[in-house]
Design a protein around this nucleic acid. Structure first.
Length: 432
RNA sequence: UCCUCGGUAGCUCAAUCGGCAGAGCGGCCGGCUGUUAACCGGUUGGUUGUAGGUUCGAGUCCUGCCCGAGGAGCCA
């Protein structure tokens, strides 16, 4: 039987007491007769101090020999220590090496992206990655908490699908007992079936896009939460989005302040993320961009430089609504007075993080949907079930998709999305 | 897919006009009772991505290929 273990996250409750910590060596400093061991156990970090005079020769020898990322068990007394990182220190009485690691490749010094990505399974042990993953987990929980407590039923959608949800992007194909099947790129269409049965729903899972995108904002496999609401319009959609995103950001700021500080994140702008968010129409956004010298023609979709320039004009996430219908998916509702506009809305994050949400009102009209499917040259027979949703009790409805990794990158202030998921799937990387 | 930049020690990089392959870190040995990516002394460490070519001589110049990074398009 394993002996009792204390977790570093609870260390303050054990001040003055003898505890056993089990973990790995993050780094150490050899001062001769004094050894500093920075121990991590997955829940946190603590410095263990080993004085030669205070311990057995075996323990001191173990403390002197232990290498970076060796697994070890340390017994000692918890002491408040302002000189130590974290404020607490362990006066070690016993150090036992579980396994002595040889030549751990990731040193505390600088490394290149390729080197680290090749060793992603080890890189995850570093402090910065530990902080990011804990933020990610909190963002996931905040997403579920908010939706669960606002009447949304979690109902997941299939990952293997017979057709595309949107016509614009590329699909990963696989063999389904002799038939082609595709990895989902959105749960959207199935969500629309769900709301007609359950009212307000969300799906939350991995989605796949075989786009040959090689940017700081793209992964081939990413996680998306997609809420969808029956009897909701574009305005309802924006209200939900701003409450939802504000809750996610404020919860993370409150619960992950330590992790964000490890990442060196300046949270000043994040404190600002409270409802309401500014709203700008596509028409006005085009005008604003041209005034700012970022030229764009009406009817073009925004690229990364446009999104960045727009977001720079506001100190909060900003809604851009009523994009030209030609820029958006076939199922988008159109504005009755101006049928060239879709009732769509994107949410652009500040600081150049770009679009974190895309969504809007879906068309309730069978006739418009049939026309759009034909215009987009989609296989009509694949969408018969979807058209049924308009035949039997069609209602106005709206929803959106929030990209988890982009949201985490924004909150953490990361320059690339690849660090926001444990094992990113990128254009040229499927390993490890 | 396109544009730009890059590939030299385990890592991060340097190498002048084409002329002896270098440094810091890491590792190893030694020293140090307050280190935070410690410091001090010593030591170890090379098929210069790859295949050709030019040259008395190529890390350096030329051509093909491979790999990576940044950006674009597309999107969350």
């Amino acid at each position: 039987m394993q002996e009792d273990q204390t977790y570093i996250q609870d260390i303050a409750q054990h001040e003055g007491r003898e505890v056993t910590l089990k973990g790995w060596l993050l780094r150490s400093t050899d001062k001769g007769k004094l050894q500093f061991l920075m121990l991590r156990d997955g829940t946190g970090f603590i410095q263990c101090v080993v004085f030669q005079k205070a311990v057995s020769p075996e323990t001191f020898d173990a403390a002197r020999r232990v290498t970076q990322e060796s697994s070890l068990i340390v017994r000692g007394k918890v002491r408040k220590e302002p000189r130590a990182p974290g404020g607490y220190e362990l006066d070690a009485s016993e150090v036992r090496i579980v396994q002595l690691a040889q030549d751990y490749p990731i040193t505390p010094k600088e490394h290149g992206v390729d080197f680290l990505m090749d060793r992603r399974h080890l890189w995850l042990r570093s402090q910065s990655q530990w902080a990011v993953m804990r933020v990610r987990a909190t963002v996931v929980r905040a997403i579920r908490d908010w939706l669960d407590s606002h009447g949304f039923l979690n109902l997941d959608t299939p990952i293997l699908t017979p057709t595309s949800c949107e016509d614009t992007t590329t699909l990963f194909a696989t063999d389904y007992f002799g038939e082609p099947a595709y990895l989902t790129q959105s749960g959207q269409l199935y969500n629309e079936a769900h709301i007609m049965a359950f009212g307000k729903v969300y799906c939350f899972g991995p989605t796949f896009r075989a786009e040959k995108s090689k940017t700081r904002r793209h992964l081939m496999e990413f996680w998306m939460v997609e809420p969808e609401m029956a009897y909701a319009d574009l305005d309802d959609c924006m209200k939900v989005e701003e409450e939802f995103v504000s809750y996610i950001v404020q919860t993370t700021l409150r619960e992950r302040a330590y992790e964000l500080s490890l990442l060196g994140r300046d949270t000043t702008l994040l404190q600002n993320v409270t409802p309401p968010f500014p709203r700008i129409s596509y028409d006005d956004a085009v005008k604003l961009l041209n005034e700012k010298g970022v030229s764009i023609e009406w009817g073009e979709d925004f690229g990364a430089p446009h999104e960045t320039a727009l977001a720079e004009s506001f100190d909060k996430p900003v809604f851009v609504h009523h994009y030209p219908a030609q820029c958006k998916a076939f199922y988008m509702e159109v504005e009755p007075d101006r049928p060239e506009l879709s009732k769509s809305v994107d949410l652009l994050a500040p600081e150049g993080y770009g679009e974190i949400i895309g969504g809007g009102e879906r068309t309730a009209s069978l006739e418009l949907l049939e026309r759009r499917i034909a215009e987009h040259k989609l296989k009509r027979e694949a969408y018969e079930w979807y058209l049924d949703l308009r035949r039997y009790g069609s209602v106005p409805h709206a929803g959106f998709g929030l990209g988890l990794e982009r949201t985490v990158a924004w909150i953490c202030g990361l320059s690339h999305i690849r660090e926001t998921i444990p094992f990113p799937r990128m254009l040229t990387r499927l390993y490890p």
